[in-house]
């Protein structure tokens, strides 16, 4: 894995209907960092993530990943480098079986059949979903779907893992398993989420988005202690940092 840094410079993005979702946003992410992107609904989290692998292109400004600018010509390389786990696994799992779905990426990248098989098996084993390989996606539970969605991305062996709301709609056990799994990854991780307790667990650095620009960027604990920033961004301190409602102790 080479050094994959992410640089966003003066990004402005306006949707075709005229809504500006990102304003003058600049950002540097170093190799191997685990970063949380937090903010209220509509603050621009998903739009920002969409810029990281060329699902969207900035109206003005540049996105640079591992030294390559994100433009039409570099997309194949970029998409191999940046693995994206979508918010709704149903959108990501479109093939008839789990196995076919995980194989979709590697096959498109042109790997030989044996290599594809190796990658699929290894990715499924990593997320603990190997036993599900012959099932169709609609026969999986929410947690299983999420695990398989991550496997579809891992099979492409990306250097950077981008995730949109990975813990949404998971039951507590599945959420804990996911967090444990993410701990084991050495990839650069960028996670957009409302689950601030998970952020506390996983990410050293947090970026707070508000109205399409960066409100705060720094060590997670520092930001979560600053109630003013959280309030301004429409957030709330994670439960584990709030004082106990019964004994008022932290």
């Amino acid at each position: 894995m080479s050094h994959h840094t992410i640089d966003l410079t003066n990004i402005l993005y306006t949707y075709p209907d005229g809504t500006t979702a990102l304003r003058n946003l600049s950002l540097h992410i170093g190799h191997g960092e685990a970063i949380a992107i937090v903010g209220s609904n509509g603050s621009g989290k998903t739009t920002l993530l969409s810029h990281l692998n060329g699902v969207l292109f900035p109206t003005t400004g540049t996105v640079n990943i591992g030294g390559y600018p994100v433009v039409q010509g570099t997309l194949t390389h970029i998409r191999r480098t940046v693995g994206m786990v979508f918010q709704n696994p149903d959108d990501q799992l479109f093939m008839p079986t789990v196995y076919d779905d995980v194989a979709f990426g590697p096959l498109n990248l042109g790997y030989p059949p044996l290599e594809v098989e190796k990658r699929v098996i290894s990715a499924l084993k990593t997320v603990g979903a190997y036993a599900l390989k012959d099932r169709p996606p609609y026969r999986l539970s929410g947690g299983q779907k999420r695990a398989v969605a991550i496997a579809t991305v891992l099979a492409m062996d990306p250097a950077i893992l981008v995730m949109d709301e990975p813990t949404a709609a998971l039951d507590p056990l599945a959420r804990r398993q996911l967090i444990t799994l993410l701990h084991t990854f050495s990839h650069t991780k960028i996670i957009a989420t409302h689950d601030l307790d998970m952020v506390l667990d996983l990410c050293k650095r947090t970026i707070v988005l508000h109205n399409g620009s960066i409100l705060a960027d720094g060590p997670t604990l520092e930001i979560f202690r600053d109630r003013d920033i959280l309030e301004q961004a429409g957030l709330e301190q994670p439960f584990s940092m709030q004082s106990c409602p019964i004994c008022s102790k932290i």
Binding site: R79, M84, F94, F104, N108, L109
Partner: peptide, 8 residues
């Protein structure tokens, strides 16, 4: 988009 992200 999910398909594009995986090299479609």
């Amino acid at each position: 988009q999910a398909m594009l992200c995986r090299g479609f």
